[in-house]
Design a protein around this nucleic acid. Structure first.
Lengths: 160, 160
DNA sequence: CAGTATCCGGTGCGATACTG
DNA sequence: CAGTATCGCACCGGATACTG
């Protein structure tokens, strides 16, 4: 028996997708990364109905990715916005990797609609997988996948 | 008017999600990265019905992420498997970033079920966003987002 | 401005049965 | 082993109306 027979029910990819794997969450988060954080701005930027946006925002707040904050600009009335938490900010590589793949494979002839640049120097950014030791950029074939400490076997009843 | 009023319909995140943003595609691809590539192995590893798996595989083949290949091991009969294309392999940062986030925020006490390591040296890998110039690892707040060559305005009728 | 409540419809999914 | 065909249902999302 190889590790290929390990269960994937507790896989982190699956668990993450259970939180943000629906049709709207990642798009809402992308807007939040871009600075669009108010309810009505989100309804304009995403063509999403108010009721759906409301539900998604609540689930993202419940999951600890966004927090609802009241704020008041100088001499203006109080408004609400949804701010990324640290937990939410850590999804930056996910969003960037999705964007990068789309830029490379699905962009218009004109090019991508958005660019993300390093604030300090203005150069483009890239999402990569690296070795934590020497920092070398790795492709899938440079890596080996194996069971981790939480590994479980594929349940017997699903085997023939 | 700021670039916050730019349209996001042609956003690369959205386009990518249109291809792999459903409930199963990324899990199928994760299995493919792990070396699980035959139809019946996939049905055991993912608790997905055969009809759904069939449809998802076809859409992934149509999108050019997988290719269906017949092969024959020594003295065995011909079998089929679904192999990642170059295009599919380039989703490695997406899968890795999702897994990393789940490892950090949603794992069991026991730890994650899987680990991905650099084949040469055995050290763990990480998904990061870097500056293409100096290679510095960046968080969301280190970056600036702006319109790219394919940018479009938010359509007037959706504004008030 | 910032939502909630309600209803309704389509799509995707799962179960089951069947084929080469 | 590697799928396809069919069907029913649940859920998600859209539209609309309404509230503080």
């Amino acid at each position: 028996m190889s590790w290929l027979e390990l269960d994937t029910e507790n896989c982190s990819v699956q668990r993450t997708l259970d939180v943000i794997g629906d049709r709207w969450s990642l798009l809402i988060l992308r807007e939040a990364f871009n600075g669009v954080r108010r309810f009505d701005d989100l309804t304009r930027h995403l063509s999403v109905s108010e009721s759906v946006l409301s539900r998604r925002l609540r689930s993202l707040v419940d999951a600890g990715l966004l927090e609802r904050v009241a704020y008041r600009a100088e001499r203006q009335r109080t408004r609400q916005h949804y701010r990324l938490t640290d937990r939410g900010l850590e999804l930056f590589p996910v969003i960037t990797a999705l964007m990068q793949w789309g830029d490379r494979h699905l962009a218009d002839d004109a090019g991508p609609a958005w660019t993300v640049r390093h604030g300090d120097c203005g150069h483009a950014v890239e999402a990569v997988v690296r070795c934590t030791d020497d920092g070398q950029v790795l492709t899938a074939t440079d890596t080996k996948t194996g069971p981790g400490p939480g590994a479980r076997l594929v349940s017997p009843e699903s085997r023939h």
